[in-house]
Design a protein around this nucleic acid. Structure first.
Lengths: 192, 192, 192, 192
DNA sequence: TATGAATGAGTTTTCATTCAT
DNA sequence: GATGAATGAAAACTCATTCAT
């Protein structure tokens, strides 16, 4: 559970983190609507009232989670390496989205629940597509190429990256992003 | 909305269908949890109690929807045409899943709400991957080929088909399945 | 199940009997309030509507049950035999109440539910006490005796007879009415 | 009404007690099934939701009532006095059951509603029979005696003690336990 | 800050009863 | 008579949110 990235030291307002940890786990598991705030408090091991002390409305828990525990890095990746497949693979590993698997499932699943979540998903996706397109362009000899193909390849790759966990969760099949990167690069290299 | 495919004639006891129509629309829109049964009744134009008459528990509405309004066709497609890209494209259009766009969103989004939904998603996905693999094998010269690549291509294509609407809904980007089919076939044809 | 006394021939309105049989079983088991009419119909193997065809209100099922399946015989028992203990024993076996064990539990348990049930219980009890008193008077030498003792003995014996099944059901202890009869007669014979 | 024995001081959070008081009164009057939780809240003078706050399910009110407001005292009575009749009489007054008349009616009437109630009735009855047997053994000259008679006498006496109020309520006849005690002791003294 | 009792609007569920066929 | 769909009032239960302490 938790954001998965490092244990927080037991500090005064450590309770707040524990509440977010609990919410992350529960929202990813059963969904936002199906998770009572009392349950969050119980899992977090804090009294019910404290949840509302930190998060006046329930939706604030979700919004805070999304705001604080997902990060779309804005800075461009360093100039791509040699080939497109490698660039895509690198992108896969350096996803410009800092978010635990649980957080990705939440982003994905609760998109309609609150505008703030939906906005963030749009942002993420746009950013990933933009970078995938950038990386893939390297694969196109001469830089020209079929715009539609490039777009589809980029969007597909972005979807694989974004929804990897959800796909695995929902279908039981894991998709190896590196292999997909390789396929996309190979395919695009044929045209152009 | 509605079952999407064909209007039912106004027959005695089409109330049940109207309830399912309304539920399909509302579940796809706001989600299962956020939809009160009273709302379903109102949209269906039937009294509240009638929903219970047909579906003793709220979850039964969802389960019935999934059971009755999605169908994973079992029969194999006719022997594939000439090339893999065309075979995949055909698969895209003849998705072995009979379900309206709303139903796909529901399948996808409410997967954790009830086991029955999850089971069906598993079934769907397995079937689509199986067929995608079958179609893509055609693209591999000599029939040999890289199993991992084949698998990744098939799974990616299946994901695109299954989550097309959700991806569009969540990100605003439409993915053209035909183009993806073409890309996959092209990429695989390079190996083998 | 059923009144226990003889199987009814399959006749035109045999359904009515089956409904009463089912109600008897269910009311004795879970109580009147906790038994839905739909359940009665299901156990009786008749459509729900038929219950209301025969018994316009639910309470009519209970009232009919009580009216038709309990009978306080009005005629006095033949002039008592030799001694009081035997007279009481005989009373025990010829209880002036014709009712299956289930019906006795119902009478007992639903007494507050409807006046008709309460009235019948009063009637039953009065009659049994009257006869017990009559039988016990035989035990009193000279016919005189302590009125309070006689009354307590008669009421206790009546309670044992009436609530035998309920006591057994609720406590797991069976009371042998014959032995109690003997005890009462013996005790009273000491006074007088 | 209330638990009947002693008024609780108006202390913080006596709302829970008031809810139990109200439930005790209403369950004894109309029965568990016929008493809506809203009615309990109204009689207790608390908002509807508070009933749930303390008792997540309606049945918990009944179970708590039984668990908290009936007590089968475990300690043995002091060595019985001179004669059996007096020992039984004493038992009658020092019933090893601490429960208001309402609680006894509830125990008795709702026995089938929940296992916890039935279990308690069993416990009570066993204890009372055990003590009645103990007291009655004093009446048997030489300590020998007829086991069946002893058992019947004890069980009958226990039933009179336990169901006193219900019998009075259902039949209108009050049974004087002291007189029954005297009868039982007298009868047993004849044998042995 | 911290706490859990208190509140009440909203939801699900139950079910007796009606009624067209 | 027989049937099961239809109805709606009432009940149980949920839970976000408030608030006194």
């Amino acid at each position: 559970m938790g954001s998965g990235y490092g244990r927080r030291v037991d500090s005064p307002s450590d309770a707040r983190s524990r509440i977010l940890d609990a919410a992350e786990e529960l929202f990813a598991g059963g969904g936002y609507d199906a998770t009572p705030t009392a349950r969050i408090a119980a899992v977090a091991g804090v009294p019910k009232g404290l949840v509302f002390h930190y998060f006046p409305r329930k939706i604030d828990v979700l919004v805070s989670l999304v705001d604080e525990r997902t990060l779309v890095t804005e800075e461009d990746p360093e100039p791509a390496p040699g080939d497109a497949a490698r660039a895509l693979s690198k992108l896969a590993r350096r996803l410009p989205l800092t978010a635990s698997p649980s957080m990705r499932r939440i982003l994905f699943r609760e998109a309609d629940t609150h505008r703030s979540v939906k906005d963030r998903i749009h942002g993420l996706n746009s950013e990933i597509i933009r970078r995938a397109r950038f990386a893939l362009e390297l694969a196109l000899p001469g830089g020209r190429g079929d715009a539609a193909r490039l777009e589809a390849a980029a969007a597909t790759f972005a979807a694989v990256l974004l929804y990897q966990e959800s796909i695995a969760h929902l279908t039981g099949h894991t998709i190896d992003a590196d292999v997909v990167a390789d396929l996309m690069a190979t395919a695009l290299a044929q045209f152009g």
